[in-house]
Amino acid sequence: MSMTALRSFRDPILVAVSLVVLWQVLHHIAGDVAVTAPAPTLAHLWEMIGQARFVPHLRETGLAFLQALAIACGGGILLGVVLGGHKLTGEVAEPILVGLYSLPKITLYPVILLMFGLGMPAKVAFGALHGIIPVVLFTMNAVRNVNRTYLRTGRVLRLTPAQTAWHILIPATLPEIFSGLRIGFSLTLLGTMLGELFASQRGLGFLLMTAIDLNDVKTILAIAVLISAFAVICNAVLLAIDKHLHRGAAPEITGK
């Protein structure tokens, strides 16, 4: 294990530790009314996870997120391949997609609620709506940028379409598509959580809103920590895979 690999683990851990210290300091400044101390909060989280009535909420959020993620990834890749493969369609669609990407989609949530009704489908739709656009954009670019020489080589070698896809298209586009999936993952989680905070009757977001209404700081922080930890850990794993996939690609140009 090289020094740099060691460092890339050590430094984030340092930041995590300083965040906990900062949390403790905030607790001392603001008191139990606003910030409960780290240790009791984590103990409370542990206790909550053990309770039977917590499990359905966790399952609700988990299911909504997984369905939204499946739609965002599957639909995003499919659309991206179509738009990337057909030049004119891609040119027509790209500015529309970029425009949608930078809209505050939260304003559209009531519309989603009117279309899908209260409950699971609306959350899934809102999560997928957030996640799908980066996946489409990244996939489209990946497909567009496949080196023409590879395809010509494939033709020379008389590869069947299936072989071309397996040996050329997938390896050539996978790193870029995976970067899109990673961003799609974060945004889908954001969308699903936003959907649960507003007009929801079940799920972690609902528990969070109830806790905010009751000013139950310990539960608020416990749920926030749970979701944040899930997000950070998943992202670290995805980031590692992302780097691994990109290692064969052209070296990144750096400013230094």
Binding site: R182, S186, L187, L189, V232, N235
Partner: peptide
């Protein structure tokens, strides 16, 4: 190096909490 993993996961954190 220290902050990158946190920045990458940032938008999945429920800020409203």
């Amino acid at each position: 190096r220290a902050f990158s993993p946190f920045l990458a996961a940032y938008y999945a954190i429920p800020h409203f909490a």
